[in-house]
Write a protein that binds this DNA or RNA. Structure first.
Lengths: 248, 248
DNA sequence: GAGCGCCCTTCTGTATACAGAATCGACGCG
DNA sequence: CGCGTCGATTCTGTATACAGAAGGGCGCTC
C-alpha cells in the first residue's frame, strides 16, 4: 500500500499498540484464534494496559479480532471460505467508487491518465523474474495510489470508510495467495483500464473495468491460495504470542 | 429499529457508556460539534473515565465522532449535504444484500412472504392520523425485521458489518425528515415488494425493488427535511452539553 | 476408574492517581 | 488600540492499583 498506513512509531501509545497489532494480524504473525492477553501484549509492545485496551477495542471494531465471552479478545478467523463474501462486498463498493470517480473526473483527469500510463509501463517493463519483490512492491504502490485517487475523486466519506475497513481484510486474506509476474502484469493492465475509464469520465466503463479486475483477482487468489499458513516462514521460529520463558 | 439495539443497561460500564452516547448522538440530544469532554460525560453517565474512553473510541470508529487534535473528541457533523453520499453507499450495499438474499432464498422464503404480508396489512390498515406514532413504530419494527432477515439470508458478515455501520448514520440523518402517513404506507408497500422479490428468489427484481424504495426514500427525506434541528423540542430546555451556538 | 465439585490462579473490568500538553485569559509592549 | 507573549488552568494520555469473575487443576466421592 502506497498510502501512509499507520505509523508504528506514532505519538500516542494507543496508536502504536494498534498499529503493531494490526500489522501483526494482517501479516499473519498473529494467527487466527490467538488470544490477545492484555498483560502479555502490553509487555510485548511496551505500553501499559490502558492504551492497549483501546487498541484492542479498535481491532474488534475493525473486525480483525472478536471478543470472546470472558476470555478476552482473539484474532478473528479468516479463511478462503470468506473469499466470496469479501469480494461480493468489494465489488459493490469499488464499482460504486469507480462510478463516482468517473462522474467527478471532469476536474483533473490528468492524474488518472498519468497513473494509467504508469500501470502500462509497469506491465510492459522487462523486469526479470528475480526482481519479483521489487515488481510487486511497485505494483502495490501504484495500486494504492489509484485507490487513493479514486477515493478522493469519489469524495464520499462514508464510502471511503467502508472501503478502508474492507481493505484491511482484503490485505489479510491476500497474503494467502501467491502472486507471480504474469498475474502482476495482467493486474497492472486491468488497473490501467480502470484509470483510463475514470479519466475519460465514463462511469459505466469504469465500473465494468473494475468488475473485470475483481473477477480475475478473485479467480487468481482462489486458484493459487494455500489453505493455511501464509508467509514464507511457516515451520520454525517465532511463536510471537506464546509464553515468555523468563518469569516476571 | 426492531432489532434489539444496544441495551442501555448492559452489564459492562463500557457498553453502557457507548449505548448512552450513541443514543444521544443519534437522537440529536448531542448535536454535531459538541465536545465530548471525558470527565463531563463520565460524570453524566455515571462511569469512570476508563470505560468512557473506550466508548469514545468506538464512537470514533463508527464515525459518529471524530478526534480533534488535542481537543478531545467531538460529535461528527452531519447535514443534508451528506444525504447523497449516504444513499450512494446505501444503494450499493442494500442492492447487494437483496441480491444475495434472493439467491439464498430457496431455503425458507416463508418468512419473507409473511413479512411481505405484514407490510401490506400495515399499508392498508385504516389507522387514523392521530396514531401516527404507533404506525411509525410498527413500520420501523417491520423494517428492522426485514433488514435482519435480509442480512441473515445474505449470510455475508462483511456486508452485514458495513450495513450496520451505515444504518447508524442513516438513522441519525433520518431524524431530520418528517414522515407522514402517506409516506409510511407507500414505504410499506415498497418494502413488501422487496420482501416478495426475495421470497421469489429473484435477485434482479429484489435489487430493483430496493432501488425503487431508496429512490423514493431519498426523495422524501430531501423534500421534507429541515436543515437544522431535528426533534420536536427545538427551542427550550435541555442543553445537554456545555454551551454551543458560537460557530467555530 | 470416572464423574463431579471445590479451590486456587489468572485474567478482565473498573477506578483512581499522576504527568505532559494544549488552550484560554490576561498582561505588557509596540 | 492591536498584537504578541507569558502564565495558570484544564484537559487528555498513561500508568498503576484493586475487585469481581471465569477457568483450570486437583482431590474427593461414588
Amino acid at each position: 500500500m502506497g498510502a501512509p498506513q499507520h505509523d508504528v512509531a506514532s505519538g500516542r501509545a494507543s496508536d502504536r499498540a494498534y498499529a503493531v497489532l494490526r500489522r501483526d494480524i494482517v501479516e499473519w504473525r498473529l494467527e487466527p484464534g490467538t488470544v490477545l492477553g492484555e498483560v502479555e501484549q502490553a509487555e510485548r509492545i511496551g505500553v501499559s494496559r490502558t492504551p492497549l485496551r483501546e487498541a484492542l477495542a479498535r481491532l474488534v471494531a475493525d473486525g480483525l479480532a472478536r471478543q470472546q465471552r470472558g476470555r478476552g479478545v482473539v484474532v478473528s478467523e479468516v479463511s478462503l471460505d470468506h473469499l466470496d463474501d469479501l469480494f461480493e462486498l468489494r465489488r459493490a463498493l469499488e464499482t460504486t467508487a469507480a462510478r463516482a470517480a468517473a462522474r467527478a473526473a471532469d476536474r483533473g483527469p490528468e492524474e488518472f491518465d498519468a497513473l494509467a500510463g504508469a500501470f502500462l509501463a509497469a506491465a510492459d517493463s522487462p523486469a526479470p523474474a528475480q526482481d519479483l519483490d521489487r515488481v510487486r512492491e511497485h505494483y502495490f504502490e501504484l495500486s494504492g495510489r489509484l485507490d487513493a485517487l479514486i477515493d478522493g475523486a469519489a469524495a464520499n466519506p462514508y464510502l471511503a470508510q467502508a472501503l478502508r475497513q474492507l481493505r484491511v481484510h482484503l490485505e489479510r486474506i491476500r497474503r494467502l495467495a501467491r502472486d507471480d509476474l504474469p498475474r502482476l502484469r495482467a493486474s497492472a493492465r486491468e488497473h490501467a483500464a480502470i484509470a483510463r475509464a475514470v479519466a475519460a469520465g465514463e462511469p459505466d466503463v469504469a465500473a465494468a473495468a473494475t468488475e473485470v479486475h475483481l473477477f480475475h483477482s478473485l479467480a487468481h487468489i482462489a486458484a493459487t491460495a494455500q489453505p493455511a499458513a501464509p508467509p514464507a516462514a511457516p515451520p520454525p521460529a517465532v511463536h510471537v504470542p506464546g509464553q515468555r520463558a523468563a518469569p516476571a
